[in-house]
């Protein structure tokens, strides 16, 4: 795929989590406007490899907006200028020929840089492990209609479950708060009958883990909701607040 876009990239390069990072400037030529942002990075990396230099490390996996791996802070916005898309779904037609694009990793105390643009998001995994699950007995799967769930409830739970855990909410928040993520994970289970058994301890444990990981507190600016590629709503944070306070008041 050849194109006629020529761009200047300012990319954060950092050898490892202990080293100091800095911006490197690269000129990329012949980019097609139909390429995704990650494909443009592939072109750059191919060239860096042929030149015998270290390619830029960045996270990616499915490249269709559902895995939550890609994580680039592009021109001061997580996942770039478009709303409701991940970096892999961002296309070069969103930029103009001759543009200078600055690419940084997610910045948060709880997301240390591993290398270049790749950050360690295992703090999210530990929040999930703390309570974002349901315990079920193994055996045959039960009939799908054994638990009646109203359609609006199923839809609302699904809206929360759409969170792919990419961390754009943390990256966008001025406090590097993980509340949109944690609240979506609490909500998707709190709204369904399967989530009721562990409901009271879930919010307490997940919030405690979230605080321990070093994420900030929420100041309700709404930046997370605006930047979330999956449109997770702030209503989830309010639900988490309710879940948490009713849990601490009643737990034994």
């Amino acid at each position: 795929m050849e194109g006629n876009m020529n761009l200047t990239l300012k990319v954060w390069r950092q050898k490892n989590s202990n080293s100091e990072g800095r911006f490197e400037t690269y000129d990329v030529k012949g980019i097609s406007e139909d390429m995704s942002f990650l494909e443009m990075f592939d072109v750059l990396n191919e060239r860096l490899i042929t030149e015998g230099t270290e390619p830029v490390a960045f996270d990616h996996d499915c490249r269709e907006g559902i895995c939550g791996m890609c994580s680039m802070y592009i021109n001061g916005q997580p996942h770039g200028p478009n709303r409701g898309v991940t970096t892999c779904q961002l296309h070069m037609r969103s930029f103009k020929n001759g543009d200078t694009i600055t690419v940084e990793p997610w910045r948060a105390k709880a997301f240390p840089v591993i290398k270049d643009l790749a950050v360690n998001r295992s703090s999210f995994d530990r929040i999930i492990s703390a309570g974002g699950f349901v315990s079920v007995n193994t055996g045959n799967a039960q009939d799908a209609n054994a638990l009646p769930i109203a359609k609006p409830d199923a839809d609302e739970a699904f809206m929360a479950a759409a969170c792919i855990g990419c961390g754009a909410c943390v990256a966008a928040c001025k406090n590097a708060s993980a509340m949109l993520f944690t609240s979506a994970k609490i909500s998707q289970l709190a709204l369904l009958p399967q989530g009721q058994a562990e409901r009271s301890i879930r919010a307490e444990k997940m919030v405690a883990q979230m605080d321990e990981e070093g994420f900030g507190a929420c100041t309700n600016t709404g930046a997370c909701e605006a930047e979330c590629p999956k449109g997770i709503s702030l209503e989830n944070i309010a639900r988490m607040n309710r879940e948490y306070f009713s849990a601490v008041l009643t737990s034994k």
């Binding site: 200028p81 910045r107 001025k174 900030g216 507190a217 930046a223 930047e227």
Partner: peptide
């Protein structure tokens, strides 16, 4: 404490999201 949660600041602050 919220200020300390992002030790390395961003170089670019993009379009306002709040």
């Amino acid at each position: 404490s919220n200020n300390e949660k992002r030790p390395v600041k961003y170089a670019v602050n993009g379009a306002a999201n709040s």
